[in-house]
Write a protein that binds this DNA or RNA. Structure first.
Length: 404
RNA sequence: GUGGACGUAGUUCAGUUGGUAGAGCACCUGUUUGUGGCACAGGUUGUCGCGGGUUCGAGCCCCGUCGUCCACCCCA
């Protein structure tokens, strides 16, 4: 027997219903916020991710499905969605027209070569949005509100964490003061953090090691070292969230794992799904378009993990639907085939090809969760009629076949 | 990449100090002629993850391997 690859899953039955429900709900809301659908390739040039996600990240450093294709191209299965959308944005030269807003939503499979566990798969699915050309913090607020609305529609409880990562103005000086703080205590930090001081000191902030967290309690805080523009934007964001009654907490140690974020960073977490608690994450990435050879364009976006939330989704109560067709003999079955084709123009119909007595059909129809059983017995066949039972109300009717 | 737990019927699981497998659910067929969900009766279902080893004999012990789950890490 051939099984699916490790960390990759087939999505069927209940799960596929949830999958579709999540996508449809999120898409509808995104459309209402002005987002249009974009589909980008799963396979991209490896350097796209190296330049966008960043070589210092674990994702690029050790988790990419990377290989050389038959044309000797260094390619990679996308580990996240933003890079591809930005590449598409630049490729379509949408960056050339300044002051234009472009908003895209997408969903699809992402790939990371990790050790699977609860909420962490090698092939997983994200729904995401990317907004280009809008530098106003109102857009940050709006996108956070939108995610809140999506989770509300899906019946998911969450906590929102926000932070500001500063910009080219304030980040370098902050980074410097952080390094100055960390260097004297370097020996006491964990091995990973010692390495991070050189590669990406900001990442020390979200180290999970309790001892490291203790050591950095009094470290300089990003939010107290913002330049005036970043500071006023962050203040504005907080006041917008306050007046919209959105609960949030400021997490000065919230550092997104991808290198391209600046200014607003946020994460939605759930405490009901195990240790992989991030259900959505995103932020502003004003420099990424430029990194990918486009003209400087402000942008903000997010992604949510479908597998992370699908056990939390409150599905609408499923009701009986459609018809189950069954007959008592072969001749009847063949008549039903023709009838089903006609009925399927407007209704969901399943036909049982095996002739059975009424009781068996009733059982089957019930199990198939059909709303109606349409039965063609010997009597009906003679009279050119069909017998229909509403399995919910138990109401029975007999109708001429041509009237049905 | 590191650590831990676990792989027995479609499924959830049991299986005593080693003696070649069992239960519930599900499924199929009935319960007198054409009325579902309930009940009852009967029935089907297994390379006991895979490969070695120990043994007269292994689901059980040993080694390896693959897989699942969980945690670390990372992140959606």
């Amino acid at each position: 027997m051939i099984n699916a690859l490790r960390g990759m899953k087939d999505i069927t039955f209940e799960e596929s219903k949830r999958f579709i429900y999540i996508i449809e709900t999120a898409s509808k809301i995104a459309q209402n916020y002005g987002y249009g659908y974009i589909e980008t390739p799963i396979l991209e040039e490896t350097k796209l991710f190296k330049r966008s996600v960043g070589e210092s990240s674990d994702i690029v450093g050790k988790e990419m499905y990377q290989f050389i294709d038959k044309g000797e191209n260094d390619v990679c299965m996308r580990p996240e969605g933003t890079a591809g959308v930005v590449r598409a944005f630049v490729q379509a030269k949408l960056d050339r027209v300044q002051n234009q807003k472009h908003r895209f939503y997408y969903y699809g499979a992402m790939f990371r070569y990790e050790k699977p566990q609860k909420g962490r798969l090698r092939e997983f699915h994200q729904f995401g949005c990317e907004s280009f050309g809008e530098s106003s913090v109102y857009e940050d607020f709006t996108i956070i509100s939108m995610i809140g609305e999506i989770f509300k529609a899906l019946g998911i409880k969450y906590k929102l964490k926000i932070n500001s990562l500063g910009c080219v103005e304030c980040m370098p000086t902050y980074k410097e003061s952080l390094i100055n703080f960390l260097t004297p205590i370097k020996e006491e930090l964990c091995n990973d953090c010692q390495r991070r001081i050189d590669t990406n000191p900001i990442r020390v902030l979200d180290c999970k090691n309790p001892h490291c967290q203790e050591l950095i309690t009094d470290s300089p805080k990003l939010t107290f070292n913002l330049c005036s523009s970043c500071d006023s934007d962050f203040e504005k964001l907080k006041s917008l969230l306050n007046s919209a009654n959105v609960n949030y907490e400021i997490d000065t140690n919230l550092v997104r794992g991808l290198d391209y974020y600046n200014k607003t960073a946020f994460e939605f977490v759930s405490d009901e799904i195990g240790s992989q608690s991030a259900i959505a994450g995103g932020g502003r990435y004003d420099r990424l378009v430029e990194f990918l050879d486009g003209k400087s364009t402000p942008a903000v976006g997010f992604a949510l993990g479908i597998e992370r939330i699908w056990e939390l989704v409150k599905m609408p109560i499923s009701t009986r639907e459609g018809y189950y067709f069954g007959a008592m003999n072969q001749e009847g079955v063949e008549i039903l085939l023709a009838l089903a084709q006609k009925t399927r123009l407007t209704q969901k119909v399943s036909v049982e090809y095996a002739p059975k007595k009424l009781q068996a059909h009733l059982k089957n129809a019930d199990k198939a969760n059909a709303q109606y059983l349409l039965f063609l017995g010997e009597d009906e066949l003679k009279e050119g009629k069909v017998w229909i039972k509403n399995l919910e109300t138990k109401e029975e009717t007999i109708r001429l076949m041509e009237d049905f």
